[in-house]
Design a protein around this nucleic acid. Structure first.
Lengths: 337, 337
DNA sequence: TGAATTTATCGAAACGGTTCGATTGTGTAA
DNA sequence: TTACACAATCGAACCGTTTCGATAAATTCA
């Protein structure tokens, strides 16, 4: 491998001059710069990122930590983050924080150890210890998906309350009153917000929520399947279901089909989040879709802004994207109204 | 930050002794080891991975390079690789090789620069220059999905020929003769194999392939959509379609639905690859599914075996997994037989 | 008991950069 | 001409490890 020493020797200058030229070409004279560039070109020299990280304390890597890496939602997000990162000459270390032997904190430590330039995090933890941990890293951090109260970082998410409100409102307008909610895991920021949007909308429509129609299915497809089975076979079943995410909606749809019910004739179904290839699913689901690529772009931009200006003090920012209501044919008027 | 120097001072030994103890505890006496461990425990010391990489030439990172990061197929694979890596104390740098500003070779160089312990690669290139490039890296490498002739590395893939043969055979048994193929991009290893499996099966059944029914849709959903439109509206349309991957199948299905055709009544459809939540798609597709998690596990195991024994010469291995035929209800007997 | 091995530990030289303070050279104002 | 500012360059220390060769101590063997 050719090192900076070799370049210095070939160009006939000192090592420090080469380093200076490499990091800020205006610091050396045009003549020297030319000699150095020539030497670099001849040898195909590349600065060693590891050595550089060791001394400078920062690398061309960013860390992305999210819950479920297999969810297509995350795939699209990662894809977007990835292109943004590459544009800035960075690569992405990605890790799941759940369902993995390592604790979320350990993963963050690992990333910090690698001197990543910044972290994009969909946090799982939310207690004070977690907050302290993040603060201790002193690293550009942007949260997405889940906001953590008391943590002074940037945050990008979509308007969860609006999303479930949209869907609930849509159903109410069709005449539904007995609306079930397949909620996400209680305690998770996005899940709680989505639940809140549901309750609020029902309330302002003057409809009492039947608590037995609200179930914490923890964003899990199988739980949603089981609960939908129960909902459809009970006395006084709901006439519509709001699923707080895509996976649960598909679980519910499966249950509906397996029981031989027809959607939307027997029951209406809506959900938050996009479903891959939703166009070919019959019935086409009515959904509140989040602009995933936009979220990825916003989060990346915020992060790289901080990375570019490491010493400047930037006030924590919050970006909330607006979900879009996509009307399918999974909702109809309730049978007896 | 506490460094190895601090530990040495606290334990009252030299730096090199600490390093020795850290990397192979049998190299130091029990008494010294105990003192060192005590000091580490007190301070919460962690070795600096970057400094370690610089000197030792290897890190606890592995690189994964694949075509399309947004495809759920890759999401599930990544998920699997990820857990395997974490089990071995490694994290994953992931990058797309296509549709990205950087060239595949540059990404590999970047990874090598980071001293990744090994690379999992679904290669895009296949020419001699590419082969030389990989060889020059001298790094544990496992290829998946696409095999490159002439490259002496491990390879994990599924039996593509068998996969398309299964589907074609299935259709032939139902009585189909005019079968269309939506092929993957010509020149890509997996695509060519899938095409080969189709032709072979048709041949041994004594059916002449109508070349106008074979179309290179480049694994692309939109192209498949357009071609299916053409196929269905032409004179003498096919009675069945084999799609070489999931994305193209969904494009085809969309076209079928948009034209008001019924699957499988008007046309049968099958594909290679799993489709996320295929159970709720009507009709449920008949598919040859690859054992994604198994592929991820096999590839990771091979890689970490090489990483664990860096100097041992291991002959290149090839693992071919067997796809499974999943019967849905997207295939029926052709209309007039 | 003395020589030959083995074991435990150490000092110092890397690994390949960055960066600070010092040095030299050039142009400008007094 | 002297003094001073400023630009260009340099030497050396440092980032936090690993590892090699050397040394000292302990053990084995004849």
């Amino acid at each position: 491998m050719t090192t900076i020493r070799d370049i210095a020797k070939i160009a006939g200058v000192s090592i420090s001059t080469v380093s200076l030229a490499l990091n800020d070409s205006s610091r050396v004279s045009a003549k020297t710069l030319q000699k150095i560039e020539q030497a670099i070109h001849e040898t195909g020299y590349k600065v060693d990122p590891v050595a550089s990280s060791l001394k400078s304390g920062s690398s061309k890597l960013i860390g992305v930590v999210a819950g479920d890496v297999a969810n297509p939602f995350f795939g699209r997000l990662l894809n977007q983050i990835q292109s943004c990162a590459i544009e800035k000459g960075h690569l992405v270390i990605v890790s799941a924080s759940r369902g993995v032997a390592l604790h979320e904190g350990q993963i963050l430590d690992f990333l910090a150890g690698q001197r990543v330039a910044g972290i994009l995090l969909s946090p799982h933890g939310k207690d004070q210890e977690f907050i302290d941990h993040i603060n201790r890293l002193r690293m550009p951090t942007v949260l997405f998906d889940h906001k953590v109260e008391g943590l002074e970082t940037d945050f990008v998410g979509s308007d969860n309350i609006l999303a479930s409100a949209m869907l609930t409102e849509h159903l109410i307008r069709l005449g539904h009153k007995r609306i079930a909610l397949l909620a996400g895991e209680e305690g998770l920021y996005s899940a709680d917000q989505r639940t809140e949007g549901f309750y609020k909308t029902m309330q302002s429509a003057g409809i009492d929520v039947d608590k037995s129609l609200v179930f914490d299915a923890k964003y899990d497809g199988d739980l949603a399947y089981a609960e939908t089975m129960r909902l459809l076979t009970r006395a006084q079943p709901p006439s519509a279901i709001v699923a707080a995410n895509n996976v649960m909606a598909l679980g519910a749809l499966q249950a509906i089909q397996d029981l031989g019910f027809k959607c939307p004739d027997d029951i209406s179904l809506t959900c938050i989040d996009d479903v891959p290839w939703s166009d070919v699913i019959q019935p086409k689901l009515t959904m509140a879709v989040q602009p995933i690529e936009e979220i990825g772009k916003l989060a990346s931009d915020m992060l790289f802004e901080r990375i570019a200006a490491p010493n400047r003090k930037i006030e924590p920012r919050t970006a909330i994207t607006t979900p879009k209501l996509v009307i399918g044919n999974s909702c109809a008027r309730p049978k007896e109204v």
